[in-house]
């Protein structure tokens, strides 16, 4: 019974959305809107669940004195500080429990939450992702060794696109006469992005869409039940 009711709920909620797509009239249209709204609210609680799980796992690592446990204190402190700032004085134009915190915002230059966002979260986030530029370069060195025709294609296209997105490409190929302008690197890059790249992306999208339809039907019809805890 504990697994039958959730299966029925999944079936009914999926069915309402599907029926509403074909019959966008009362009551189905209203059902769809209500269910979509509910979905958003429940998803927010799921985020809350995720954050609680993060706290639980960090607290467990600290209490069990796991390797590098001291760093997990920083996670909890930064989480707590950002959360308290956000709840007390709000973010951007949204007020918090203590209002907009005008005096604090005046002395900090922005709200405490926004101050942390600008000077801690943003630099950490963009530096973390920019770090990938170095690792992509080293991965490319290994992946782009010209062994087959296919790897050559990948290498040549990547080089054209990388060069084509810089001003250097314009200087490099500006000598090409106007009659052959499509061979200039920026235009060649646009051509690759617009035609061969779109063709392959379309093939992937169409094929994946068929897979998504199949997987969704399996879930709605109750054939796929792993979301209920690994049952087959």
């Amino acid at each position: 019974m504990k697994s039958k009711i959730p299966q029925l709920l999944a079936f009914l909620s999926g069915l309402v959305i599907l029926v509403a797509a074909f019959i966008p009239h009362t009551p189905f249209g209203m059902f769809e809107e209500t269910l979509t709204n509910w979905f958003m609210i429940i998803s927010s609680f799921a985020i809350l669940l995720g954050q609680s799980s993060l706290i639980q796992s960090n607290v467990a690592k600290i209490t069990q004195k796991a390797p590098n446990w001291k760093y997990h204190i920083a996670t909890l402190v930064s989480f707590g500080v950002m959360l308290i700032f956000g709840l007390l004085w709000g973010m951007e134009n949204t007020p918090g429990i203590l209002g907009q915190g005008e005096k604090l915002a005046e002395s900090l230059g922005s709200k405490p939450f926004d101050y942390l966002f600008e000077y801690a979260f943003m630099p950490l986030s963009s530096t973390m992702f920019s770090l990938l530029a170095f690792y992509i370069a080293s991965a490319a060195y290994r992946a782009f060794i010209m062994r087959t025709f296919e790897s050559n294609l990948l290498l040549i296209t990547a080089v054209i696109v990388m060069l084509g997105r810089t001003s250097f490409a314009t200087i490099l190929t500006s000598w090409i006469p106007d009659s052959l302008h499509f061979l200039r690197l920026p235009e060649l890059t646009d051509f690759i992005m617009q035609y061969p790249n779109t063709a392959a992306q379309r093939a992937i999208l169409i094929s994946a869409a068929l897979g998504v339809v199949g997987a969704s039907l399996r879930i709605i019809l109750g054939i796929e039940r792993s979301y209920l805890g690994g049952e087959k």
Binding site: I47, Q51, G86
Partner: peptide
């Protein structure tokens, strides 16, 4: 670790 804490709190708020 600070990044993990800040981003979790950011998305929660």
């Amino acid at each position: 670790q600070i990044f993990v804490g800040l981003s979790a709190a950011y998305w929660l708020v």
